[in-house]
Amino acid sequence: MIAFKLNDKNVQIDVPATAPLLAVLSNDLGVNGTKFGCGKSQCGACAVLVDGDPVRSCATQISAVSGRSVVTLEGLTQNGKPSKLQQAFIDEQAAQCGYCVSGMIIQAQALLDRNPNPSDSEVRTALNGNLCRCGAHNRIVRAVLRAAKEG
């Protein structure tokens, strides 16, 4: 039995200790936002926050988050409404297919937590490890800068 906090709620789950966090979130805990992209920590689609740190959930065994706090895309919403950052992504229409965006938002949230006023190039550097195939990059950067500006 592994216990941790998911989006501010305590959860307890009986799954194999080596199961990837991503699989448990998606298949056992009904999380939609977190996506499988590569299973190799290469693309960032599966990013979640663990104790505030951006983490690739595909390469994290569930046992590693025992007792920790996990936040997914769903967990960023506030009272059922999109967070400032999520709203900025909506306002900037910062997606084409939108599959990578969950990881982008998580990674950007981690950046903004550390640096609330990043420059264009700081945003890009922070997101370089997250891959987008549709070419929504500049929109995504604009969305993060917009969220920063709107504080």
């Binding site: 663990v50 690739r56 590693a64 920790r68 370089n128």
Partner: peptide
């Protein structure tokens, strides 16, 4: 902490493993 790559080598990112791996790992 992973690697946020230098501007001249933007494809050389590495994710953070602080929370993915336990201390003993």
């Amino acid at each position: 902490k992973g690697v946020q790559p230098p501007t001249g080598a933007p494809e050389k990112s590495m994710p953070r493993f602080a929370q993915s791996l336990k201390d003993d790992d």
